[in-house]
Amino acid sequence: MAYRWKNDLSPTDVTPKGLWLNRRQLMAGVGGTAALAMAGGSARAQALEPNTLEQISTYNNYYEFGTGKDDPAAYASALVTDPWAITVDGMVDRPGEYSLADLMSGLTVEERIYRFRCVEAWSMVVPWNGVELADVLDKVGVQSSARYVAFETVVQPENMPGVARQVIPFPYVEGLRLDEARHPLTLLATGIYGQPMPKQNGAPIRVVVPWKYGFKSIKSIVRITLTDTQPPTTWNRLNRREYGFYSNVNPEVDHPRWSQASERRIGGGIFSSRQDTLMFNGYGDQVASLYDGMDLQENY
């Protein structure tokens, strides 16, 4: 259902092309007034300036193109995104290979301005365009036995210079619990700032889960699998102690490499100051109930 969750800001019409590169005073509501109102909480709008498209599309982690933050922007243009097919399988009523258009048909693409917090302790604010993953799941018909959703990123070795280096195993895989996947905040995003998704940001279609560390928001999806067992996830497989399945943004659970208590917003320049990281990246009043009764130190 489109517009279940509302930005303070109306969709892309307030952000005419040409302005988004240097607007400075934009007030972006990320409190989610509508969802909050539905949840009975008090609406709290926060002034946040989204990052520029240039920042969002030149500082990326997309290891298929290399480990440098500027590698994806340098090499992702080779990625072939048209045609694009997504295999939907597992515990679904209507499995099959869907074209991107088929998967998105009839769904309303809306703008969602979300905080984005990387496990490396940097963050951005990104105005995504996308649909709720829940709507796509409804379309393919999730069977009652399903409990998890698994995703897989495309592998095009000839177009992805990082694949041969095997810095991490490919294809990149991620997963969500079904209730996380169905949460109104969880998006399948196809654009940023009203533009088609830049390839380095995961074109043509990617997951966005704003209360989890960025690596959970898997890019360039070619497979969606509904399953009843917790699916393997790439970073967890690589280093179980450092990257849990849940990987909710949590300033109290320290990562072995990076303190998660604070973060740096990208775009502040060389003298930018750190800011405190918010529990669930600031979406706690909307998602904390998903984890009622769970020990979040244990289930990091």
């Binding site: 933050k69 940097w122 740096r264 060389i270």
Partner: peptide
């Protein structure tokens, strides 16, 4: 380079 924004959008880590 870092100060003038030529080390990318996150100059601290880059430097």
């Amino acid at each position: 380079l870092g100060v003038s924004g030529q080390l990318g959008p996150e100059p601290i880590n880059a430097l």
